[in-house]
């Protein structure tokens, strides 16, 4: 393994550790590039590609369906519960709770979406989990 390859692995190790420890924001990429003599463009391309997946400061959105079926099956209460729980959290940990017209899964109501995941049906354990986080 060449020195360049070894340095790349050292960089990857630091990067993945930062993600694991949820302190990616504190990782100084420019310093690492200088210390390890890495290709700046290559590193930035790599980091930017994965940025969306691991960006911890990204605003988390919870979409709550406010269509007739979902309201009738309890989404009004879920919405109120999440808004109340959100108010008790510190601003950095608060979620964005957004009412939406329809999530197109009315037969599996009540529907909600957290990030990319749709939560359907009566199993509301995800709400409790979200409140505890």
């Amino acid at each position: 393994m060449s020195l360049q390859e070894q340095n790349w692995w050292i960089f990857l190790n630091s990067w993945s550790l930062a993600i694991k420890n949820k302190n990616i924001d504190q990782l100084n990429i420019s310093n690492l590039i200088e210390e390890l003599d890495l290709d700046t463009n290559l590193v930035h391309e790599f980091v930017n590609f994965f940025q969306d997946d691991f960006n911890l400061s990204k605003e988390q959105v919870v979409s709550i369906c406010m269509g007739g079926q979902c309201r009738a099956k309890g989404n009004e209460k879920i919405f109120a519960k999440l808004v109340d729980a959100n108010l008790t959290k510190i601003p950095e940990k608060q979620l964005k709770i957004k009412p939406v017209l329809c999530l197109h899964e009315c037969d599996k109501a009540p529907c909600s979406q957290y990030g990319a995941k749709l939560h359907l049906g009566d199993d509301l354990s995800w709400v409790e989990r979200l409140i505890k986080e």
């Binding site: 007739g68 309201r71 009738a72 009004e76």
Partner: peptide
């Protein structure tokens, strides 16, 4: 539930 559906309609 009809009341909830009507609120959904207003929304």
């Amino acid at each position: 539930a009809a009341s909830a559906a009507k609120r959904a309609m207003a929304y």
